[in-house]
Design a protein around this nucleic acid. Structure first.
Lengths: 144, 144
DNA sequence: CGGTATCCACTTAGATACTG
DNA sequence: CAGTATCTAAGTGGATACCG
């Protein structure tokens, strides 16, 4: 298996992914599972979580202040909050050094790395399709 | 290429995905691109967008009220709002029938389908790892 | 440096009522 | 049925100040 060895999705590939997911993970197997998954997605699918995941995935290990620099626009409060939640969910590993001044390093856990791998296609999609989205917006706004 | 023919990610696969993304889409090519992508991700990575995308990906075409039934917990207002934004971004196609009572059908556009394909691994990750996350939370909460 | 705590402005989202 | 409009409660997030 290759997670990703070519960026774009052809119509056939989309259809195949759909068939695959429907076959192995039918949405109606167990409504409780379905709702649990919804709950999980709701938890991870927020602005900052995804961006931090992306950053740590790209950069590896970062100190708190370096992370703040990379994640443009985030406040210290939200960075702390989001990192705590990700740590609690087992996605992020926090390593503190007992020195002065304090030093804290963040990195993705093995679980976090697998989530990063799963998100890889989404990031690539974003890179490749941001023109298409911009165009769609212009069209939509033009004849609204 | 197979988008997905086996669920789990091994360490090697994670490493390969990472190398791939870093090589073809280095995070430092163009800071403007990077920030645009961040902006896009921020836009799509909200609770309802992802769940609606998931639902339409699984179900194909749905009427407004069917969508409301599938997406448990969403208010009519948020459903309308999110669908409008997704339509504006070119992800969703809205088809209205001039009849009484009114009938409106929503489905994913070709662009939306490719985003769904990109998200496929994330959904599968959520299905497969929700136990791991629950366990991580218990551990974290236990010795806090 | 890497936080925590408090306060406050702003946004968001649910409930409700109404419409084509 | 598929919305829109309005109001309001609750949550979010930024600024600031302070601590280990």
């Amino acid at each position: 298996m290759t997670i990703q060895n070519r960026p774009a999705f052809t119509t056939e590939e989309v259809a195949r992914a759909q068939t695959y997911k429907a076959r192995d993970y039918p949405s109606n197997v167990d409504p409780r599972i379905e709702s649990l998954v919804r709950e999980m997605i709701s938890g991870f699918a927020d602005k900052w979580t995804v961006v931090i995941l992306d950053t740590l995935w790209d950069e590896g290990t970062l100190r708190f202040s370096d992370l703040a620099r990379h994640v443009t626009g985030i406040s210290q409060k939200m960075l702390t909050q989001t990192l705590r939640r990700m740590e609690r969910d087992g996605l992020v590993v926090r390593k503190t050094y007992a020195c002065v001044p304090p030093k804290v390093e963040y990195s993705l856990s093995p679980l976090g790395l697998t989530l990063g791998a799963a998100f890889c296609n989404v990031w690539i999609w974003a890179i490749e399709n941001h023109d298409a989205v911009a165009a769609a917006r212009t069209t939509f706004d033009g004849d609204e």
